Computed example of a mutant assay.
Amino acid sequence: MAKNPNKKVAPKDEPMNGAMKFFLAGCVAELYLLILRRFYINADSELTRIAWYDHYLWTLAGIGAGVLAVGVIAALVLRGSAKKQKSAWILAAAGAFVGAATALVRLNMATLSFMTIVVPVIMLLGILWALYDRECALALTVLGASLFVLWGVRRYGSSMYVGTTVKICVVIYLVLLAVLAVLTKSGKLNKLLPPKADKLPVYAACGLSALALLASLLGGGISYYAMWALAAVVFALAVYYTVKQL
């Protein structure tokens, strides 16, 4: 019997399909960054590196900008078809990534190492939001962002050039954590956190993150131990919710 072409995807399969899309997109993005590293950063000769610096990177950035423009125009034109419009936005996002990543590498090649870390993190967060409950996804996102901030404090907090800026960023992040906790309590995060969701993991994530960051401001090696303690909490929470989902 022929399969029904109009058969819709079962609701229980949608989270897995969304997670697979994030996984594939992350793999493609990371592959592109590895190509830039292989042929530009680790070029076989200085002449090859100069050619990439002067010509190829600008060409790739231009292609990315062109794809972005085509995707945005197509998305605006195809407003009547949700599926086609979604594909157009995906195309625009791909163009934006290629153009922005290439331009950043061209301006400062050190950003490539940073992006090779950020892309897998964003991919994992996308998979997290696709598969896990909203309260767990939000809590783990907060803890993951706090780990990143703690790493920045440990790496640059004592710098005579950017140390003060890093501490100001930590204070701003603490304010954002407080705002998130208040919005969670008031129930104004309906798109991120349904009204019936358990709010305790979000409160715990904000509180633990705030304590770890306040401790890191004391200096010394406190930020190192705070980072590992918070990482242990992330691992335990992820394991707990994975078992719960199963």
Rank of each mutant, 00 (worst) to 15 (best):
Thr102Trp: 10
Val153Trp: 09
Ala232Gly: 06
Lys167Asn: 06
Leu68Pro: 00
Leu180Gln: 04
Tyr156Ile: 03
Ser87Asp: 03
Gly80Glu: 12
Ala19Met: 05
Ala43Glu: 10
Lys185Gly: 06
Val171Met: 14
Gly66Trp: 09
Tyr224Ala: 07
Leu47Asn: 08
Arg38Lys: 15
Ala82His: 13
Val67Pro: 01
Ala29Ile: 05
Pro195Cys: 00
Lys83Cys: 04
Cys136Val: 14
Asp54Asn: 13
Val179Cys: 04
Leu31Asp: 13
Ala94Gln: 08
Leu208Gln: 05
Ala82Tyr: 09
Phe114Arg: 07
Tyr132Asp: 09
Leu246Thr: 09
Gln85Phe: 00
Cys206Gln: 02
Lys83Asp: 12
Leu128Thr: 12
Asn108Gln: 06
Gly64Tyr: 09
Leu31Ile: 11
Ser45Leu: 07
Glu14Met: 09
Leu183Met: 11
Ala65Asp: 02
Val70Arg: 01
Gly219Ala: 10
Val171Cys: 09
Met16Cys: 02
Ala25Ile: 08
Ser87Cys: 01
Arg155Met: 10
Trp151Asp: 11
Thr165Leu: 05
Ala205Glu: 04
Ile63Tyr: 12
Leu138Tyr: 04
Val77His: 07
Gly18Leu: 12
Val67Asn: 01
Leu91Phe: 13
Arg37Gly: 11
Ser216Ile: 05
Pro120Asp: 08
Leu24Trp: 10
Ser158Lys: 14
Met20Gln: 10
Phe235Ser: 09
Cys136Leu: 05
Ala205Leu: 04
Ile222Pro: 04
Val72His: 00
Ala226Asn: 01
Lys83Phe: 10
Arg155Glu: 14
Ala103Gly: 04
Ala65Lys: 03
Leu125Glu: 15
Gly152Trp: 06
Gly152Arg: 13
Leu24Phe: 15
Ala137Arg: 07
Ile122Pro: 02
Leu143Arg: 14
Leu36Ile: 12
Ala212Asn: 05
Tyr224Arg: 12
Asp133Met: 08
Ala75Phe: 02
Ala210Pro: 06
Leu211Gly: 01
Tyr40Val: 08
Val118Asp: 11
Gly95Cys: 04
Ala43Arg: 06
Val239Phe: 10
Ile73Asn: 01
Gly99Phe: 09
Ala93Val: 07
Val149Ala: 11
Leu193Phe: 00
Ile63Gln: 10
Trp151Asn: 10
Ala205His: 02
Tyr240Phe: 14
Arg79Val: 08
Leu192Ser: 01
Lys191Met: 11
Val170Tyr: 04
Ala69Asp: 01
Tyr173Arg: 08
Tyr161Lys: 13
Arg106Ile: 03
Lys84Asn: 08
Leu189His: 01
Tyr132Ile: 01
Arg37Ile: 06
Ala65Gln: 02
Ala103Val: 09
Trp151Ala: 12
Val179Met: 11
Lys191Val: 03
Ala25Leu: 13
Gly99Asn: 09
Met123His: 05
Ala204Leu: 13
Ile41Lys: 15
